[in-house]
Design a protein around this nucleic acid. Structure first.
Lengths: 191, 191
DNA sequence: GCCGGGTTTCAATGTTCGTTGAACGGGAAC
DNA sequence: GTTCCCGTTCAACGAACATTGAAACCCGGC
């Protein structure tokens, strides 16, 4: 093949190669965030595709089995991150990505991180209650230790509450948003 | 033992039980955040202790082997989250927790999350460069696809940059802080 | 230099997690 | 009702990870 005439096959291949690189990048981020890597990879390929894609095509591009793809898509749909869209004249299901990226992040922050921090906070407060009782103990040493632990536990509880507030702030800013990125810029604009 | 006379043994035991519950709570949070559970548990026990503790005591309270404890302490020290402190008349090493909780969080945000997002951003920008070349392709279909992907990729890159800004904001607010929690309240006060 | 308590390292083990491939189920077309 | 094509589910495998226990190591005192 000559160098100048019709580069499209080569560049077209470059496109899907770039897709994979980006998919792996997103996958790595998702992994760091406690999700399965494949969730990020599947979503990314859909996000970079002009048209909705069907299962076989996704399996091909990502080199994963149908089983794994099915599971990944199920979870992505559960998070509201991927939709199925009917394509006329094809029995196969086609999938497309939710494009409002920030909305996705906000949803996870809201449903997952928030719950986790709330559970920790509940544990801390339960412990606080038990400990406050112990501050009335007859033995001065036990009493002092209890008092000390109460103060430290209050630090943990306060931090948890602060974290919940930060989460709330981030999530709320996602509701107001016009575009996917506006929200974050706004938050930063308030510096 | 009678019910009224000297409750200290009982309450004292209650104290260490509360410790464990809190330790497990912190451990769960750490796990969600991509660390080993034990790191959170060890740190929490130290954080709730008035005096520095030595290895055997930590092993007892947490029910872990000396090996695991050693590894955990090594990593905690690496993160600057636990210090060793010499105790006169005891050959054993004693450990105490860094108490400025928010400082810890900020450090992790800075060193770990920041790096991860930066790497992802670099991947996106590398892909963008390749793709921009493809927007000049002779084949209209390839050209269009490339243009589309470029737009989408810019969304990802923008979100990454926004995330880096948020991280920077949080980290910076930790430097200014008086107390561990002041910083976060300040961030929220700007609402 | 040698002994002994204290700490770290590491091979071996148990556990958890991701992934596959094949069996199952459901619904459109005939 | 039967066939065929997709999609989902799940048992089984393998890789990755956490944890142990014991051996190696370090260092202060003798």
């Amino acid at each position: 093949m000559t160098a100048t005439a019709s580069r499209s096959p080569a560049t077209s291949h470059a496109l899907t190669r770039a897709d994979l690189a980006v998919a792996d990048g997103v996958g790595a981020l998702m992994e760091l965030w406690g999700f399965r890597r494949q969730l990020g990879r599947v979503w990314a390929v859909l996000f970079l595709s002009e048209r909705p894609l069907a299962a076989p095509e996704l399996c091909d591009r990502l080199h994963i089995s149908t089983g794994l793809l099915s599971m990944s898509l199920a979870e992505l749909r559960h998070w509201g991150v991927v939709r199925t869209v009917p394509i006329a004249g094809d029995r196969k299901e086609h999938f497309e990505a939710e494009t409002n990226v920030w909305k996705l992040v906000a949803k996870v922050l809201r449903e997952r991180e928030k719950r986790a921090v709330e559970e920790a906070l509940a544990t801390f407060e339960r412990a606080l209650q038990e400990l406050r009782a112990a501050t009335a103990d007859v033995d001065p040493a036990v009493k002092a230790a209890a008092r000390f632990k109460v103060r430290r536990l209050e630090q943990l509880a306060d931090l948890s509450r602060a974290a919940l507030n930060v989460l709330k702030l981030l999530v709320d800013s996602a509701r107001v948003d016009a575009g996917p990125l506006k929200a974050l810029s706004d938050v930063l604009g308030r510096r």
